[in-house]
Amino acid sequence: MIEPKLEVPNELRDLAEKTIDQAEKAFTLFFDAASKSMAAVPGAGTEISKQALSFTEQNLKSAFEHARKLVHATDLQEAMRIQSEFLRSQFTSAGEHMRNITGEVMSAAKDLTKSKS
């Protein structure tokens, strides 16, 4: 069975790419401002918050890259392959992030327990 090509006009692909670029720039500004805000207000959960923000930023960068790849998919099979790769990488990344955050939380809890003793 032959997969039909995705007939998407180049103008629409260009518009989608520009929209993705604009959204990515907006989120970059947001993450820069959020990072500066966290640095200005140190606290017990600051490191965990910074790490969570970093993970969120990485996830969004991956999502923007995924969207760029999808914009250029030429058939449904390619789009499904791109989607499958993205989901696999996101599950792997989420597991790594959870392990890192869990380690940070456990370390902070140990430090808190030691300081109260």
Results as ranks from 00 to 15, higher is better:
residue 38 M to E: 03
residue 111 D to S: 13
residue 21 D to W: 02
residue 9 P to R: 09
residue 17 E to C: 14
residue 52 A to V: 04
residue 96 E to P: 05
residue 42 P to D: 10
residue 51 Q to I: 10
residue 90 Q to D: 08
residue 64 F to H: 02
residue 104 E to A: 12
residue 103 G to A: 13
residue 32 D to C: 10
residue 14 D to I: 13
residue 37 S to H: 07
residue 101 I to P: 00
residue 102 T to W: 03
residue 116 K to Q: 14
residue 81 R to E: 15
residue 64 F to K: 01
residue 48 I to V: 14
residue 16 A to P: 04
residue 107 S to G: 13
residue 4 P to F: 02
residue 68 R to K: 15
residue 11 E to D: 11
residue 111 D to R: 07
residue 28 T to F: 05
residue 29 L to T: 08
residue 40 A to T: 01
residue 90 Q to I: 08
residue 68 R to G: 13
residue 98 M to G: 09
residue 81 R to C: 10
residue 42 P to V: 11
residue 24 E to F: 05
residue 34 A to Y: 02
residue 44 A to K: 12
residue 69 K to A: 15
residue 24 E to V: 10
residue 7 E to S: 07
residue 91 F to N: 07
residue 38 M to G: 03
residue 9 P to E: 12
residue 75 D to T: 05
residue 112 L to T: 11
residue 49 S to E: 08
residue 46 T to N: 12
residue 3 E to R: 00
residue 65 E to R: 01
residue 94 A to I: 08
residue 115 S to M: 11
residue 91 F to K: 05
residue 37 S to F: 09
residue 11 E to F: 04
residue 72 H to P: 02
residue 72 H to Y: 06
residue 47 E to A: 14
residue 37 S to Q: 11
residue 68 R to M: 13
residue 36 K to P: 04
residue 94 A to N: 12
residue 46 T to E: 10
residue 116 K to R: 14
residue 81 R to V: 15
residue 18 K to A: 15
residue 101 I to E: 01
residue 24 E to R: 05
residue 96 E to L: 15
residue 64 F to S: 03
residue 92 T to K: 07
residue 73 A to G: 06
residue 76 L to R: 01
residue 17 E to P: 06
residue 117 S to N: 10
residue 29 L to K: 07
residue 116 K to C: 14
residue 34 A to I: 09
residue 22 Q to R: 07
residue 44 A to W: 07
residue 59 N to W: 00
residue 53 L to W: 00
residue 24 E to M: 13
residue 61 K to G: 11
residue 50 K to H: 14
residue 101 I to L: 11
residue 50 K to D: 10
residue 60 L to H: 01
residue 107 S to T: 14
residue 25 K to Q: 15
residue 40 A to G: 06
residue 64 F to D: 02
residue 107 S to V: 12
residue 50 K to T: 10
residue 67 A to E: 04
residue 20 I to Y: 00
residue 6 L to W: 00
residue 26 A to T: 08
residue 49 S to C: 13
residue 31 F to T: 00
residue 30 F to H: 10
residue 31 F to K: 00
residue 32 D to P: 05
residue 73 A to P: 01
residue 47 E to L: 13
residue 61 K to M: 10
residue 57 E to R: 05
residue 15 L to V: 09
residue 17 E to T: 14
residue 104 E to V: 04
residue 91 F to Y: 05
residue 50 K to S: 14
residue 71 V to E: 01
residue 83 Q to L: 14
residue 63 A to K: 00
residue 54 S to T: 11
residue 74 T to I: 10
residue 115 S to A: 12
residue 101 I to C: 03
residue 51 Q to F: 09
residue 91 F to M: 12
residue 23 A to E: 04
residue 84 S to F: 09
residue 93 S to Y: 03
residue 47 E to P: 05
residue 66 H to R: 06
residue 23 A to M: 10
residue 11 E to G: 09
residue 49 S to R: 02
